[in-house]
Design a protein around this nucleic acid. Sequence first.
DNA 1: GTTTCTTCTGTTGTGTACAACATAATTGAC
DNA 2: GTCAATTATGTTGTACACAACAGAAGAAAC
Lengths: 229, 229
Amino acid sequence: MTASMNIEAPETAPRARDRFERMHAAIRNRICLLDYAPGTRLSEEALAAEYGVSRTPLRRVLGRLEGEGLLQSVHGVGTFVTDVEIGELIQTYQLRLELAELTGKLSAVAPDEALWQDFRALSARSKAMIDAPDPRRFAQLNMDFFLALLRLTANEPLKDICERLYFQTTRIWLKSVFASRIDLADEVDIFDREVHDILRALEIGDLHAAALIQRAHISMSFERMRRNA
Amino acid sequence: MTASMNIEAPETAPRARDRFERMHAAIRNRICLLDYAPGTRLSEEALAAEYGVSRTPLRRVLGRLEGEGLLQSVHGVGTFVTDVEIGELIQTYQLRLELAELTGKLSAVAPDEALWQDFRALSARSKAMIDAPDPRRFAQLNMDFFLALLRLTANEPLKDICERLYFQTTRIWLKSVFASRIDLADEVDIFDREVHDILRALEIGDLHAAALIQRAHISMSFERMRRNA
DNA sequence: GTTTCTTCTGTTGTGTACAACATAATTGAC
DNA sequence: GTCAATTATGTTGTACACAACAGAAGAAAC
């Protein structure tokens, strides 16, 4: 029965669209996890070669990333990872605070069993990170936890916007954290407490409280960043 | 003095980027003003010919519009103007309500003289529209007024998001209004009252009240649309 | 030595031919 | 006549060659 399903399931997977999505996600993660730091110049030809395609489909991906504010192409010069000046960063964080609260107020859904499992795994990763802090893995964990929390929001447009703003600003915050090795351990500690607090609120079933805790942590992490910079 | 400024101002206008922006705005307006109704198939070749370019730069524009949720390309079939199903529409409007209130609460700026002039012109256009209702011109007026109001918001990311959501949903609302000729006159009346009320709030200097009025009108227009559909 | 102009180099942007794909039309078997 | 397979047609997606462009390096004038 399951076999017959697998046999009959090419599932209308358009090869082109799938490849686009994979390249897009890959390059976006590299930017947001600081593999490509702000200001870095990307080589269209090198990236195209890496993915075994010509410049044309790659440029389509870069165009999308430019629309999302992560890249900027200049004719005859290059394609650069964008940086965010402090003024816009402040505005974005103010907005993220309000939106974080909205996610709790506006149509939030209780986590299902699959999400609970993911949360437990994330909690374990967070605890393990305390003994062995690592910048890159911390960045990945932070992103995974954020995306997991986002699954509590039923409002799709709001979800998209929060994701967009996260990808836009987190790399700047990460850059500030990674600047000094000492502070990383502190940030890991603080993050673990945030995970713990939010999961406890979720266990009680208080989604609004969870959102408020997240909001508070976004605000505080932004404050720490401003003082470091 | 002003002459010398004009002489020395080629102003680093990259021909390619400028052309991209113009094509993007033009096609976006056609979609949002219902020249291209939801479900319409766009011809890449015809559009490219219209703007005197090849498919390559045009496809870049279409790709951006796809990223903004206004188009969807399917390999071997065509590029179609997206429609919005009722479920997502409800979510988007709920979100727009909250964001409208945010624009008043979060860093709003008083209008300058240029904006006042634009508001007066918009008010006049609104009054004139009552005697001679016209679907296309009403759509344009509605958009212009929305964009003018948006200039009161200092928070750039919030501004971008509101604009994005407006472009995403208004065409659906317009489609509903245009469906019956009778209701257009009513909508024009209601719109004129909205303009009047908001401008009065602005004259007093109460930006928050203006945002609340706008919020109320968004909510009511959405209710009217649901009942018509 | 300084400045200006020219040339060179590497990048993004564009035009064009063709491949991949989906669908409608046609053909053929029965 | 019906249904299947096949062909035909029109679309988006891709590859590649070249144009447009910006900046650096170098040459020439003084």
